[in-house]
Simulated assay, not measured.
Amino acid sequence: MIHTISDLKKSDNFFLLAGPCVIEGEDMALRIAERVVKITDKLGIPYIFKGSYRKANRSRLDSFMGIGDEKALKILAKVRDTFDVPVVTDIHAADEAAMAAEYVDVLQIPAFLCRQTDLLVAAAKTGKIVNIKKGQFLSPGAMRFAADKVVEAGNNEVMLTERGTTFGYQDLVVDYRGIPEMQTFGHPVILDVTHSLQQPNQTSGVTGGMPQLIETVAKAGVAVGVDGLFMETHEDPSVAKSDGANMLKLDLLEDLLVKLVRIRQACR
């Protein structure tokens, strides 16, 4: 079980945060976790199961938000206990940090909230690993200050995640120069492959995406030397209740990871 960032660094491979965008139910979460655990064990990839217990940042009022906080958090804990893997979930407000920390190993700060001091400090005080997503509106260099807030609150277990930068109203781009720049801060840097391919602010009120470029973006990130990868995956993205437009179909994950491991080995 991974408890600290040092545990992640024991492997020469990149590590992986992967799972569904949001917990839709227990059976679904366990099936996805079982598949990914088998793949990552075979390839020697340290793995953290990802699932949001609630989606707070939605475009429309009728968008799916979750099955209930406690119910979803208990499912995340069951995934951890069943497969002996750590789990990560998003938190959205300072008073959620302690609640979520009872069930998960990594607290993730959403990109839009990466400057919220009270949220970062509350996450830090739980003693859990804190993964801060870079705001779509921030330069890589500005993320030093978000990380410093967690460290100065007494927690050195910090990771930073690149997830694209706003490019116009309905697109994102990844500036791969930001990965080595953020690594100079002394924290592992993750590339969020699937969210980097979102197309936000669609007139329908439902975020679009370009999943056909998942492999391209992931390969480039590994070649640049990213420490970890983040990918949302689902058995059938077409029926996913959140972010289906940019998720990776679960059946495609193993082939992609095989290619990425080869790139990692070649680069090292």
Rank of each mutant, 00 (worst) to 15 (best):
I5G: 15
F14E: 04
G19W: 08
C21A: 13
V22Y: 03
G25Y: 10
E26Y: 06
I32V: 15
A33H: 14
V36P: 04
I39S: 10
K42H: 14
L43V: 03
L43I: 12
F49S: 08
F49H: 13
K50E: 00
S52M: 03
Y53Q: 06
R58V: 01
S59F: 03
R60N: 11
D62F: 02
S63I: 00
F64C: 00
I67F: 13
I67Q: 06
D81K: 15
D81F: 10
P86G: 09
A94V: 02
A97Q: 07
A98S: 07
A98Q: 08
A101Q: 05
E102Q: 05
V104R: 09
D105L: 09
L107V: 03
Q108K: 12
P110I: 03
A111Q: 03
C114D: 10
R115V: 02
T117V: 06
V121G: 01
V121F: 00
A123I: 03
K125Q: 12
G127S: 08
K134G: 09
L138C: 13
L138F: 15
S139Y: 13
G141I: 07
A142S: 14
M143G: 12
R144A: 08
A146R: 12
V150N: 12
V150D: 06
N155L: 05
N156F: 07
E157H: 10
L160A: 09
R163N: 03
F167D: 06
G168A: 10
Y169D: 07
Y176C: 09
R177S: 08
E181W: 12
E181T: 12
T184Y: 10
T184G: 02
F185Y: 15
F185P: 05
L191P: 02
Q198W: 11
N201G: 05
N201V: 01
T207M: 00
V217M: 14
G221T: 08
V222Q: 11
A223C: 05
V224K: 13
V224R: 11
V224G: 08
G225M: 08
V226L: 13
E232W: 04
H234K: 14
E235A: 12
D236A: 10
A240H: 07
S242M: 02
N246E: 01
L248E: 01
K249C: 02
L253V: 00
L253H: 04
L260I: 11
R264K: 15
R268G: 05
